[in-house]
């Protein structure tokens, strides 16, 4: 049987430049934070992110400069935690293309 369990760093290596990732969770809830940290260390480029309500994990990758496109409905942290700074800065500087759909 195929064994899927592996160290976090090895799992992060599976993602290559330019690939699209679907990151789960909703804003600050259940986002794969540790995985995003591991992936951010690898300095990937031109990743595409898809999610209904990307939050912390996706924002880490945006802040690391790894993302060039995001497909989403809502991108933020909700309530008093407010807007996602990495994504926001990326959009405003024109580095990230935001495809907002809902």
């Amino acid at each position: 049987m195929c064994r899927k369990v592996m160290p976090m760093a090895a799992a992060a290596e599976l993602v290559k430049d330019g690939q699209m990732l679907a990151l789960g969770g909703n804003a600050l809830h259940r986002t794969p934070a540790a995985y995003a940290h591991a992936l951010a260390r690898l300095k990937r480029f031109n990743l595409k992110i898809a999610g209904a309500a990307p939050g912390y994990a996706s924002d880490v990758l945006c802040a690391a400069g790894a993302v060039d496109t995001v497909y989403f409905g809502f991108f933020g942290f909700e309530n008093e935690y407010g807007l996602a700074a990495g994504f926001r800065k990326g959009c405003q500087e024109g580095r990230i293309k935001a495809i907002e759909g809902s």
Partner: peptide, 15 residues
Amino acid sequence: LPPKVRLNGSGGANE
């Protein structure tokens, strides 16, 4: 063009 201020998007508000 890139926005001057990017907000968080409509989420479910559009529906």
